[in-house]
Design a protein around this nucleic acid. Sequence first.
DNA 1: ACGCTACATGAATGCGCATACATGCGTCAA
DNA 2: TTGACGCATGTATGCGCATTCATGTAGCGT
Lengths: 344, 344
Amino acid sequence: MNGPLTSSDIAREAGVSQATVSRVLNGSDRVAPGTRDRVLAVIERHGYAPSALARGLVTNRSQLIGVIVADITNPFYPEFIEAIGESLAARELRMLFYNGGLGDEEAYVRLLLEHRVEGIIFTSALRSSQAVRRLVDERFPLVLTNRSVDGADCDVVVGDNPAGAQAAAQHLLDLGHRRIGLITGHAEASTSVERAAAFATRLEAAGVELPAHLVRDAAFDQAAARRVAVEMLTGPDQPTALMCVNDVMAFGALNAARSLGLRVPEDVSVMGFDDIPMAGWEAFRLTTVRQPLAEMARASVRLLSERIAERGRPAQRLVYPSDLIVRDTTAVPAPDRRAAEARR
Amino acid sequence: MNGPLTSSDIAREAGVSQATVSRVLNGSDRVAPGTRDRVLAVIERHGYAPSALARGLVTNRSQLIGVIVADITNPFYPEFIEAIGESLAARELRMLFYNGGLGDEEAYVRLLLEHRVEGIIFTSALRSSQAVRRLVDERFPLVLTNRSVDGADCDVVVGDNPAGAQAAAQHLLDLGHRRIGLITGHAEASTSVERAAAFATRLEAAGVELPAHLVRDAAFDQAAARRVAVEMLTGPDQPTALMCVNDVMAFGALNAARSLGLRVPEDVSVMGFDDIPMAGWEAFRLTTVRQPLAEMARASVRLLSERIAERGRPAQRLVYPSDLIVRDTTAVPAPDRRAAEARR
DNA sequence: ACGCTACATGAATGCGCATACATGCGTCAA
DNA sequence: TTGACGCATGTATGCGCATTCATGTAGCGT
């Protein structure tokens, strides 16, 4: 009576062979109804659970999917993880979860491979990720979600960052902003780079300058964004609006404004990107760009399991639309506002 | 060349036996330095990763720990998961992650057991959980974090809920509040029950009534708490303060107040419990009760791995202190709402 | 009644590894 | 020089399961 029961234990008690137990477990085979019921009864009675280790060893299918997240405390990710978890469960797949995946990706991937995961979902790969490129070269099933990696020809699920960022820029331009600060994420994150580039391009096209000191990196981090925003809002050449390439950093900017006694949007406008659920909370009411996060998460799982089933298929790149969501953190810039009020 | 390399492949190429490869992989054994280097070179060259499935089958150690969370989108959990992940990694353990564990716990646990997890961390067990009790009966290694289960004699890591809730009650009483609303979590969650009970007791001891219609359940959910708070703040017998048994619900209450145009703390005071990082954000500046979340998470992992090593040891219950953190959402009550409005 | 088929089931095998046991070699004391 | 011993390494085995092949039995037609 050491450790969990085995299929042989069940077989003995049910008076059949181990092979038969295996057959009823896997349903498909032809087993006499009476035998099946008898075996199932024994399984039920003991709460027998077949070993996924042994099964995986034989079938070469671990039922495990590795999911790598850079920072689960960043409120962007939980939504994703939730949706991924649901999709995985629906496909009889379990999640081997790794948080902090930015550091030594190599080590993480190694561990995942030891456990013979059938595939990996990277939610926060860096553009230059060696680990990702190597896996792609080996045709190991993986999908990049919300990010892409330079030169890696693999399945990718992203939002339409350029369109979203341009819409954001246009929104601020339309309001009349001409001095705009941009808070970017990690310089190695495609998401940040794409959004920042498109935003800058749109501004440039409208003849609005985006000086270097108004473009700051905050690595997708709330606290860092808060610091950077404080600096921009107290430094020279203060912006009338702050664009952040994700919502979490926009919360940081909002916190910064509040800590400085500035009103949003009266004194500064703030924009985010992603439209995570918190962005809609009364505490924020953040103007942002919506991405269909849950849908993107589901698509990632779908793509991954399709690739597992068919390794040779051509890589797909799914691009989801981005929609401008105007809430309460953006308005006409302050000077104009005064003028407008005076005009009345 | 199907599937990953095996130790036999490595052995063949290194000119040794499979057993020797296994020996160098597991370090300990006496292997000639020259042989070891040769084998390691081959392993390195091919990026060979030994199968955790096969190893687990032999050693009966999967290196997997199941972690069950009720709702990862609840900002309380990511902190926990992060800390748990780090502790697990430090012990060469991986996280098999399950979100949504409140629903069919039975099914989840079954899956975890199939994968032969060495232990399970429940972060959101319900008081009456059958699944937990059964596991405890079977002496399966598990620890309950932030929750306890009635009649389950197992390792538990919790904050000092009674002390924290009493401190919260005392704080509101000291400020002069006499009509206080209480928003509770899931009625089956020990955390909620303990906090609510201690809070009520303290009020009662001070001769302050806590009428039934001012005690509402919001299941630890932000949106539900928001709804309930709106009802209490617009209904009859409006409270001057709202105590929420966790921070996330306090955010809901804050959102409710804001949506009603009520100022916090001038018109209503709001308190939470947990002191998750967001509670300190300028957007909230929530008065709350701090629990050492990361420490509790680490202790959970420690307890679990100790129990895995020694199944027979007596169950431990670790109680961590709770500290009142006074920030900006609590103040002396407005004499009454009308007076407050008249003043404006 | 006989032989044949279809089907239910058992026996045997191997997945990749750790480990107990066996072997062969060098070393050292006598 | 010899036998005993220790060390490095090889051989054999089994973990729990899926699966292939072998076997026996019932059911069928003629």
